[in-house]
């Protein structure tokens, strides 16, 4: 017989909102959050020191230092550090659930699989964007600081190219989406920290090795570095996505769709 209990089910958007609120709270004191806030500082610090000590050898006298400063830093950050950051971030965020044996608890709540999948994806996208914005802000701030500390480099004599940085961020962010989606699905499937990180690192190294390959646009782990192709002379950056950017979006869509379907076959039979 059926009971007289109210059998209401929250709508998908409500579930997503609730799940997101919980996922944000889980970030408190996590390495994922520290990595997001701190990782942007590393390439900035590196290039600020290089320009502080050796800037006079890198820049031509009287030249606007901003394009060279931003491009060189961006190239290092996007080529190797950004893919590794995304690999590490996705594993760290999901490892919070693995470590707490929380999947069984999570799926015993009145939440659909789609809400859990969507909310964690949104958290990852948000952290990824936050890290890149923090990096860009720190980069510009370090340029201003160099203008004060090393007036001979002429940072203070030219305006910071803020108009170029926003579209540059757009290209870089889109370029990371393929990696993010693949790593997200891998971490959800394996439910381990080490396995997806190892695979992600290997893929990044392979991508860098294959950089001269004619089909490199198809390799999602190369997309962040390839996104710099959107940069024209004098740091002119348009909004139109390059082939590698479009393919990164394609990878993201395919990985998320296929991953979501595949993950439907994964059940909470083990002790987690």
């Amino acid at each position: 017989m059926e009971t007289a209990l109210t059998f209401a089910q929250p709508g998908l958007l409500t579930q997503l909102r609730r799940s997101l609120a919980a996922d944000v709270l889980k970030l408190k004191h996590t390495p994922a959050l520290w990595l997001t806030l701190g990782s942007g500082a590393l390439p900035v610090l590196l290039f600020a020191l290089i320009f502080f000590f050796k800037g006079q050898f890198i820049l031509k006298p009287g030249e606007n230092p901003w394009p060279a400063y931003i491009l060189q830093s961006w190239q290092t950050a996007t080529g190797l550090l950004l893919p590794l950051f995304v690999v590490l971030l996705s594993s760290l965020v999901l490892h919070t659930e693995n470590k707490a044996l929380a999947w069984k608890h999570l799926y015993a709540q009145p939440l659909s699989r789609a809400a859990v999948f969507g909310s964690k994806l949104l958290v990852l996208l948000g952290l990824n964007l936050l890290a890149q914005v923090v990096y860009a802000v720190l980069l510009v701030a370090s340029g201003w600081l160099l203008g004060v500390l090393r007036p001979g480099l002429h940072f203070a004599d030219f305006a910071a190219p803020l108009g170029a940085i926003v579209p540059l961020l757009w290209h870089t962010f889109v370029a990371t989406l393929g990696i993010l989606a693949l790593q997200y699905v891998a971490a959800l499937w394996w439910r381990s920290f080490a396995a997806p990180v190892a695979v992600g690192m290997a893929c990044t190294i392979v991508a860098l090795t294959l950089m001269r390959w004619e089909y490199i646009n198809w390799v999602p782990y190369a997309a962040p570095l390839l996104s710099l192709k959107a940069v024209g002379k004098g740091l002119a950056v348009g909004w139109a996505l390059s082939t590698s950017g479009l393919l990164a979006l394609g990878w993201a869509a395919a990985a998320l769709l296929l991953g979501y379907v595949l993950l439907g076959f994964r059940h909470e039979g083990a002790a987690r």
């Binding site: 209990l5 209401a8 089910q9 929250p10 709270l25 889980k26 408190k28 004191h29 996590t30 919070t96 470590k99 707490a100 044996l101 929380a102 999947w103 069984k104 608890h105 999570l106 015993a108 009145p110 002790a271």
Partner: peptide, 16 residues
């Protein structure tokens, strides 16, 4: 929505 469950080891976030 009407069920509370504790299955095997409690699912706890140690950092919280």
């Amino acid at each position: 929505g009407q069920v509370g469950a504790l299955i095997e080891m409690p699912s706890l976030y140690d950092h919280l």
